[in-house]
C-alpha cells in the first residue's frame, strides 16, 4: 500500500493484540459487583500518564464529578481525548493533570493560547468525528480505519493519520490509527452494580469509549436493579463486562445538564467558561474542587438542595428519557 503523505504527530500506538490480551486477563466475564466511591474509582483506575477519554463534557452529560476528583487527586501527565469538550480539558490542564491532548473541539479562549505558548499543553490536531472514528476502530478491535475526510487539512500533518492509495480502488484514502484509551469515564442515566448501563438521548461516543478502553469507569445518576435491564434489554447501552467500576453519582454532571433529569446551572457555567476566557481558572478550582473533599460535600456546601431542586424543575422535557 503506497503511503502518499503522513502526519508527524505523536499518537497512542494501536495494539489490537495487546488489547485482546488485556481483555483476556483483566475483564471479568461474570456478574461481579463493582461499586466504588469516586475517590476509590479514580485512585484505582486512573494512573499518571494514562490516555483518558470522557464522553460528552463538563456541561453536557459529562462525568463532571469524576473530572473534579481527578484534579483533587493530582493525577499527572494525562493525555486527553479532546472530542467535543469545552472546559474539562482546561480544568485538567490548570489542575496540573493533563499535558497532552488530541484536539477535535475544545473550549477556546486565552487559557488555551496561554497553555500552549507556555508549553504546558502539547496538542495534536484531529477533528471531532475523526476522533470518534478512531474510537470506533478501537471498539472493533481493528488497527486502523479508513475515512473520507481530514485529508488536505493542516491538522493532518500534526496527527497520526496517513494518506495512502486504497489497494482496492486505487484512489487516495485517509487512514486513522485506532484509539484504545487507557481509561474512559462515562456518565450515564442508570446503571446496575455490575456495570450494565443505560444512556438516554444522544451522546458523542459513549458505547465506543466503553468498548475501546482498557479501563472503564461508569458514574450513574441512578443505580437500578439488574432485573430492570432484563425486562428491557434493548435499552442497555453498555454491557457489564466492559466496565471496571460503577460510581453512584447523583447530579454527577453538575454544573452540566443530564437530559431528562436536570438542567445546567447557567450561573455556574458562565463562571467556569468565564475563567477560560480570562485565562485564569485557579479561583474556580479552589472554590469548586480543592476546598471540598467530595462531590457530595460540594453539592451540600457550594450548591445546596434548593438550587438542585430548581435545576430539576427547569428540565421540563421528559419524552425519550424513561421517566
Amino acid at each position: 500500500m503506497e503511503i502518499l503523505a503522513e502526519g508527524q504527530g505523536a499518537y497512542l500506538p494501536p495494539d489490537p493484540d495487546g488489547f485482546r490480551a488485556w481483555v483476556r486477563d483483566n475483564k471479568p466475564r461474570t456478574l461481579v459487583p463493582k461499586m466504588l466511591n469516586e475517590h476509590e474509582a479514580i485512585e484505582k483506575f486512573v494512573s499518571d500518564g494514562d490516555y483518558v477519554a470522557y464522553d460528552c463534557n463538563y456541561f453536557q452529560r459529562g462525568p463532571s464529578s469524576l473530572i473534579r476528583e481527578i484534579i483533587r487527586q493530582q493525577k499527572k501527565d494525562l493525555w486527553v481525548c479532546g472530542k467535543f469538550t469545552y472546559v474539562a480539558l482546561a480544568l485538567l490542564v490548570e489542575g496540573g493533570c493533563a499535558t497532552r491532548a488530541d484536539i477535535g473541539f475544545v473550549g477556546f479562549g486565552p487559557w488555551l493560547s496561554k497553555a500552549v505558548a507556555a508549553g504546558r499543553l502539547q496538542t495534536y490536531e484531529y477533528s471531532n468525528v475523526v476522533m470518534t472514528y478512531r474510537l470506533q476502530a478501537g471498539a472493533q478491535g481493528l488497527p486502523f480505519i479508513g475515512v473520507r475526510s481530514f485529508g488536505g487539512t493542516e491538522g493532518f500533518p500534526q496527527s497520526g493519520a496517513k494518506l495512502v492509495t486504497d489497494p482496492f480502488s486505487g484512489k487516495p484514502v485517509v487512514l486513522l490509527p485506532a484509539l484504545n484509551p487507557d481509561v474512559s469515564i462515562i456518565h450515564v442515566h442508570q446503571a446496575d452494580v455490575y456495570g450494565n448501563a443505560r444512556v438516554f438521548g444522544t451522546g458523542i461516543s459513549h458505547v465506543d469509549c466503553a468498548l475501546a478502553s482498557k479501563k472503564v469507569i461508569v458514574s450513574a445518576e441512578e443505580i437500578i436493579e439488574t432485573d430492570e435491564f432484563r425486562r428491557d434489554p434493548a435499552r442497555t447501552s453498555i454491557p457489564h463486562f466492559t466496565v471496571d467500576a460503577v460510581v453512584h453519582a447523583p447530579f454527577g454532571a453538575y454544573p452540566g445538564t443530564v437530559q431528562g433529569r436536570y438542567a445546567s446551572d447557567v450561573q455556574h457555567v458562565v463562571e467556569c467558561f468565564g475563567g477560560t476566557m480570562r485565562g485564569d481558572l485557579q479561583p474556580y478550582l479552589e472554590k469548586w474542587v480543592y476546598s471540598v473533599d467530595s462531590h457530595d460535600e460540594m453539592l451540600e456546601k457550594r450548591v445546596g438542595w434548593k438550587k438542585i431542586q430548581a435545576l430539576q424543575r427547569r428540565e421540563t422535557i421528559r419524552e425519550g428519557y424513561s421517566i
Binding site: 453536557q60 445538564t257 457555567v269 467558561f273 422535557i317
Partner: peptide, 21 residues
C-alpha cells in the same frame, strides 16, 4: 448558554437519536 448539543431542548422531538458517528 453553550447548550448546543446533548441537551434535551436541542434534540427535542427528533426522529432519531444517535451519536457523533
Amino acid at each position: 448558554p453553550l447548550m448546543t448539543m446533548v441537551a434535551s431542548r436541542a434534540g427535542y422531538r427528533a426522529l432519531q437519536w444517535g451519536t457523533m458517528n
